[in-house]
Deep mutational scan, measured.
Amino acid sequence: SQTQRTQDENEARRIAEEWKRRGYDVEVRNRNGHWEVTWD
């Protein structure tokens, strides 16, 4: 799996939607004030 971090929730949601469209299983988490998008 791969993880991308961002400070911006909207960006995190956009990234998550992009990977979901490509057929990946995606998880979005808030950790210590930043957002992590993990896909595999």
Score class of each variant (00 low, 15 high):
Gly23Glu: 02
Arg29Tyr: 12
Asn30Asp: 09
Trp35Pro: 00
Lys20Glu: 10
Arg22Gln: 09
Asp40Lys: 15
Lys20Arg: 14
Glu11Ser: 07
Glu9His: 05
Lys20Thr: 10
Glu36Arg: 02
Tyr24Pro: 00
Ile15Ala: 03
Val26Glu: 01
Ser1Val: 13
Ala16Thr: 03
Arg5Asp: 05
His34Ile: 15
Arg5Ser: 10
Arg5Gly: 06
Gly33Trp: 02
Glu17Asn: 09
Trp39Phe: 08
Thr3Glu: 04
Asn30Gly: 05
Ile15Arg: 03
Asp40Trp: 15
Tyr24Ile: 05
Arg21Ser: 12
Val37Thr: 02
Arg5Glu: 08
Glu18His: 12
Gln7Thr: 13
Trp35Tyr: 05
Glu11Thr: 08
Asn32Lys: 05
Gly33Asn: 06
Asp25Gly: 07
His34Met: 15
Val28Gln: 01
Trp39Gly: 03
Thr6Pro: 05
Arg29Val: 14
His34Arg: 08
Asp8Asn: 10
Arg22Trp: 07
Ser1Asn: 10
Thr3Asn: 05
Thr38Lys: 09
Arg14His: 07
Glu9Asp: 03
Val37Lys: 00
Lys20Asn: 07
Arg29Thr: 13
Asn10His: 12
Thr6Arg: 03
Val26Pro: 03
Ser1His: 12
Trp35Gln: 00
Glu18Tyr: 15
Glu36Val: 09
Glu36Asp: 04
Val37Gly: 00
Val26Ile: 05
Gln7Ile: 09
Arg5Met: 13
Arg29Leu: 12
Gly33Thr: 07
Tyr24Arg: 05
Val37Asn: 00
Gly23Pro: 00
Trp35Gly: 00
Glu27Phe: 10
Glu17Cys: 08
Val28Asn: 00
Thr6Lys: 03
Arg5Gln: 11
Val28Leu: 07
Arg14Leu: 10
Asp8Trp: 06
Arg31Gln: 11
Ile15Gln: 04
Thr38Asn: 06
Arg13Ile: 10
Glu27Asn: 08
Thr6Val: 14
Trp35Leu: 01
Asp40Asn: 15
Ala12Ser: 02
Asn10Thr: 11
Glu27Ser: 12
Asn10Arg: 12
Gln4Pro: 03
Val28Ile: 13
Glu27Cys: 14
Arg22Met: 11
Arg14Phe: 06
Ala12Lys: 01
Gln4Arg: 09
Val26Lys: 01
Asn32Thr: 04
Glu17Thr: 06
Glu17Tyr: 06
Trp19Gln: 05
Gln7Asp: 14
Gln4Ala: 12
His34Asn: 09
His34Tyr: 15
Glu36Met: 06
Trp35His: 01
Arg31Glu: 11
Arg21Asn: 12
Arg13Asp: 04
Gly23Cys: 14
Arg13Leu: 11
Glu17Lys: 07
Ala12Tyr: 02
Trp39Thr: 07
Gln2Tyr: 13
Arg31Ala: 12
Gln2Arg: 12
Glu11His: 07
Asp25Tyr: 14
Thr3Leu: 09
Glu18Asp: 09
Gln4Met: 15
Thr38Gln: 08
Arg5Tyr: 14
Glu18Cys: 10
Ala12Asp: 00
Arg13Met: 11
Arg14Glu: 09
Asp25Gln: 14
Val37Trp: 01
Asn30Val: 11
Thr3Asp: 04
Arg31Ile: 15
Thr38Phe: 11
Arg21Lys: 14
Arg21Trp: 05
Arg31Leu: 13
Arg5Phe: 13
Asn30Tyr: 15
Glu27Gly: 05
Arg13Pro: 01
Glu27Asp: 10
Val28Met: 05
Glu27Met: 10
Val26Phe: 03
Trp19Thr: 02
Trp35Thr: 01
Glu17Phe: 07
Val26Cys: 04
Thr38Asp: 04
Asn32Phe: 09
Gln7Ser: 12
Asp8Lys: 04
Trp39Gln: 03
Val28Trp: 03
Arg14Tyr: 06
Glu17Trp: 08
Val37His: 00
Arg21Cys: 08
Gln2Lys: 11
Ser1Tyr: 12
Val28His: 01
Arg31His: 13
Gly23Leu: 02
Asp40Glu: 13
Ile15Tyr: 05
His34Glu: 12
Asn30Ala: 08
Asp25Thr: 14
Gln2Met: 12
Arg5Cys: 08
Arg22Glu: 06
Arg29Lys: 12
Thr3Met: 11
Glu9Ser: 03
Trp19Gly: 06
Glu17Leu: 09
Val37Pro: 00
Asp25Ala: 13
Ser1Asp: 08
Glu11Pro: 00
Asn32Gly: 11
Trp19Met: 14
Thr3Val: 12
Gly23Lys: 02
Ser1Ile: 14
Tyr24Met: 05
Glu17Gln: 08
Trp39Met: 08
Gln7Phe: 10
Ala16Trp: 04
Ile15Met: 08
Arg21His: 09
His34Thr: 13
Asp40Met: 15
Ala16Gly: 05
Thr38Arg: 10
Ser1Pro: 15
Glu27Ile: 14
Ile15Thr: 04
Arg14Ile: 09
Trp35Met: 01
Trp35Arg: 00
Arg31Asp: 10
Tyr24Asp: 01
Arg21Tyr: 05
Ala16His: 02
Gln2Asn: 13
Glu18Pro: 00
Gln2Ile: 11
Arg21Asp: 09
Arg22Ile: 06
Asn32Tyr: 08
Arg5Ala: 09
Gln4Asp: 05
Gln2Ala: 09
Gln4His: 15
Glu36Gln: 05
Glu18Ala: 09
Glu17Ser: 07
Trp39Asp: 01
Thr38Tyr: 11
Arg5Ile: 15
Trp39Arg: 10
Ile15Val: 08
Ala16Glu: 06
Glu36Cys: 03
Arg29Glu: 07
Trp19Pro: 00
Asp25Asn: 15
Glu18Lys: 09
Arg31Met: 14
Arg13Gln: 09
Gly33Lys: 03
Gly33Met: 03
Asp40Ala: 15
Arg5Trp: 15
Val37Ala: 01
Tyr24Val: 05
Trp39Pro: 03
